[in-house]
Amino acid sequence: MLEPQENTPLEAKDLGLSFGSHVVLKDFNLAVPKGRVSVVIGPNACGKSTLLRSLARLEKPSAGTVLLDGKSIHKQPTRGVAKRLGILPQMPVAPEGITVGDLVSRGRTPHQSVWRQWSRQDEVAIQNAMDMTKITELRDKAFSSLSGGQRQRVWIAMALAQETDLLLLDEPTTFLDLAHQIELLELLKRCNEEQQMTIVAVLHDINLAARYAHHLVVMKNGQIEAQGSADKVITQDIMKSTFGLECYVMPDPVKGTPLVVPA
């Protein structure tokens, strides 16, 4: 077995988090596998978003730690963390009147300073991010004029311009129709395959999660119910115990991954 730091860039160790008396995460241990797509699923209010926000140092844990490259993420300079890890929150807010090009270029912030607001590397990174997400021709459009699917691609482009090898996304497919959900997940798959990005996403759709995740994490009441490959984790029993859902699990006719059909 490899050293833990080598196969996991990001790790939750005995993580606990409470808001007042409400316990959201309890003794949570998770090692995010390097260079893979991990997807977190679970019923509403099971603590998925809080987990993702904790992994991205946006929440301060009440117990335990989050380790980035083996060191506590809260003890590292936040700008340095931003060069390693990008986070796309659930419903990001764009500044009023901003264009697509400007928005994507804000992703360069951790690589810039007040004195150096622009560099050749910025230009290259932004162009690459726009090529990857196919939004180059939208560059001068107002962000507010875009459709939901386009907006989501622009947000991903901003995260890509940040040039991190870790990308965390909180329900990136919410409010998208099925075709655009697939488009977005294919994009994330390409980011993972072509740029070896480690991706952690919270998703609602179990079947899509099963199709795109290398590593699935099933959460319930702030704890891990099961984790591993989709084949291992998506079973009748686990669906029943986690979601309270009676269902059949059969192979997806296209990809062969497990497909949940409610009974």
């Binding site: 926000r53 991205a56 140092r57 946006l58 936040t78 700008r79 340095g80 963390v81 931003a82 060069k83 990008g86 986070i87 796309l88 929150p89 990001p92 807010v93 764009a94 500044p95 009023e96 804000r106 992703g107 912030t109 951790p110 940040q162």
Partner: peptide, 12 residues
């Protein structure tokens, strides 16, 4: 001018 999660995620 982004929401605070995005701004914090950018290292501010």
């Amino acid at each position: 001018a982004f929401d605070e999660d995005l701004a914090a995620g950018l290292g501010l």
